[in-house]
């Protein structure tokens, strides 16, 4: 968000925590934990869901140009688990889950070393 953008009112935004582990943090300025304020609705007026969040992260938070290490074919790439409040997002409706204020979204890249 640039400085000129009109300040969003609190009721227009969602405060969430987004975390990256398993090496994914390297794609996000080497920060594991990000506190974000994201718009509550998309431009078409629909509620912000996981699909929109992933898109938002890719556009706004990810400075690394290697986008395919995070998304592939329009969704989170294979080998990354997405967890909504410590539960697999497949239990919560995957990318259709509508984000609530206070949610903790965790992206875990699987490790293979042993």
């Amino acid at each position: 968000m640039s400085d000129q953008a009109p300040k969003m009112k609190d009721e227009d935004t969602l405060s969430i925590t987004v975390e990256f582990t398993g090496g994914l943090e390297m794609l996000f300025s080497n920060e594991r934990k990000h506190s974000l304020s994201i718009p509550i609705r998309n431009e078409d007026g629909t509620r912000t869901n996981m699909a929109a969040l992933v898109d938002y992260l890719c556009q706004n938070l990810m400075k690394d140009p290697r986008k395919d290490l995070f998304i592939l074919d329009g969704t989170v790439r294979p080998g990354i688990l997405v967890l909504i409040n410590d539960a697999d997002w497949e239990l919560e409706g995957e990318d259709k889950y509508e984000i609530e204020s206070g949610d903790n979204i965790l992206f875990v890249s699987t490790l293979h070393g042993g």
Binding site: L69, L72, P78, G79, S109, T110, H112, G113
Partner: peptide, 9 residues
Amino acid sequence: KPPPPESVL
């Protein structure tokens, strides 16, 4: 699906 090989360290 397996992870892309370039993501495996």
